[in-house]
Structures are given as structure tokens and as C-alpha cells.
Amino acid sequence: MTTRPIPVPPRGAEVKWHLSPPYSARHLLWLVLIVALLLVTGQRTDMDRMVAMTTQAVGNLIGVADDSQVVRGLSRVGTAMWPPVIGEVEEVNRMSDLDRDRLPLFSYIEVQERVEQRMNLETLQLEAATEQVEVLVKPLGYVWTVFVKMVETLEIALWGTLLSVVLSIPLAYFAARNYSANRFTYTAARGFISLLRSVPELIVALFLVLAYGFGPIAGVLALGLHAAGFLGKFYAEDIENADKKPQEALEAIGAGKIKTLWYGVLPQVLPQYIAYTAYIMDRNLRMATVVGLVGAGGIGQELKGRFDMFQYGHVMTILIAIFIFVFLLDQLQARIRARLI
């Protein structure tokens, strides 16, 4: 071993200190470059039009501008969406399995008059025909439908998260450089994780709907696969960065990889693992409302169906339900956080 003393300049030697200013011409050049880049991309993404239209809309709202395309569009949708649909009315003679003695809760049968325009084949003119129709009225029918769909959404998120945890544990093991069996398994696991992470849930769901059909299976799989990539990566990185000392102690007595991981790593990384998993649960809850748009079950599927049929009142009910759902989740999360900290 060689130990050298720290070099100290001889006494009396002149030392020139120089501290340059924090910015130079090069920084200015960078600034100009960045601003130019922002201007170009802003132009390409129509940011100029966005500003103009928004300004016009604000102007219209405060009475300065006469007309605004944005305000017109929004108010048209807004009026169509109001009021939200709460009840449901079904024609009795279209329901095959209605038991008149046991109606669903809060519902009742009513006779409604319906006026229909019919073509009279003899006169070839439209005539108004009045018809007596028996209908089943469910005052909270649609709210209940949405509630059931919301529960399904919750279940999709839950199972998606469960699936992602189960998948990511072996992935994380092989993607941790210090535990993977060899270079090949390491690279394969890392590659697979990147693949899972690179495809967004919606796109995965799009394909899985083709494979599994409409419904929650595709949703659960889509959420689970994407999140498995995320969790696999973060679990693995925590294993790699975990304190080496306890692992060394267990390696020294020949405890074996799995047992070392269980006793030397897992207890140390567990709080982080819980945090990652909670994040994924939160993300999946929000994503589960969306994957239905491509037919993968849950509230999104209901939303898409109603939207496509121009039933904006129903859409409004769904949007309100999603808002309440997310709001309640945030409250719950705040509670849990307060409890844990």
C-alpha cells in the first residue's frame, strides 16, 4: 500500500484563484436555441390557435366578443347533457321474465300514453295514433346500473393490481442484476419489462378485447400487464440498491439466494414496495374507468355505448359517478395515509 501526503504548495508560492461568473455566452446561446425550439413545436401543435380561441371564448363569456366556436361547442354539449339521467323506463311487453308480484325495489308499473306518427297506407298520410303502453318505471334504475358498473370497475382495478404484483415478483427477481441467474435471464427480464411498460393500457386492452371478447377479462389483463412492467422495474431496482451488509452476512454462511432475499433484502425494501403498489392501485383505479372505452369492461364501456348513441344525459350521470368515485378514493387515501404516518 502506498500512502502519499496531500500535496501542499510550498510556503510563499503564489496561488492564483479564479472564480468565473455563473453565466457565459454559451448559456445565452443555449437559451436562444431552447426558445426557438419551443416556438417551432408550439407552432406545430397549434398552440397559437389554442391561445386565440381561448381568448375569444373568454371574451365571449365576459361580453366583449360576439361569437366563440369554443363556447358554442361546449354549451351545445352542456345542454344536451343536462339533466343527468336517473331513472329508467322499460316497456313491460318487451320484458320476457317480469314477475308482476315481485317487482324490483322501488319500481312500479305504470300505463303511459304514447303518441306515434304512423303512415296510413290508404291515405298515404301521417296520422297520430295514441297507444296505451304498460311500462315498468325504476326511479333510480340508471343510477343503480352505473353503480353496478362502478363496482365492476373497482374489481377490475383490484384484480389488475393483484395480477401485476404476482407477475412482477419473478420478473423483479430476474431483473435484479445481483440475483438474476445469468446475463441472459437478466437481459431477457429487463427487455420484457421494457416491453410491458412501453405499451399503454388502452392499446393492450384494444388487442386483448379481440382475443378475449368484450368484458372485464381484457381490462384486468391490460391493467395487470402494464403495471407488472412498472412494478417489476421498481421492485428490481430496490433489490439492487438494498443495503449489501445483511446480504453479505447471509451469503457468508451460505444461506442461498432466495432465503437471502427473503431475510436480507425484503424487510428493508418492504415500505417502498408498499408505496409502489399503492401507487399502482391508485393508477389502476383511474385507468379502469378508461379501458372500457375500447370494450374492456367497467364504467368506460357503459360510457362509450351511451356516447355513441348520443345519450348525453346518461353520459352526464356516468361522469358524475366517476367524479364521486375518484373523490371518495382520494378521501380514503388521505385517511389511510394519516393513519400510517
Binding site: 443495503d243 451488509k245 445483511p246 452476512a249 454462511i253 431475510y263 436480507g264 424487510p267 428493508q268
Partner: peptide, 12 residues
């Protein structure tokens, strides 16, 4: 082996 830094699993 007995280690200088004890090498225990701290959170266990």
C-alpha cells in the same frame, strides 16, 4: 462471521 458493522437486517 461477526462483522464490523453488525450487518443485521435493520427492519427485521
Amino acid at each position: 462471521m461477526v462483522h464490523q458493522h453488525f450487518n443485521l437486517t435493520n427492519r427485521m
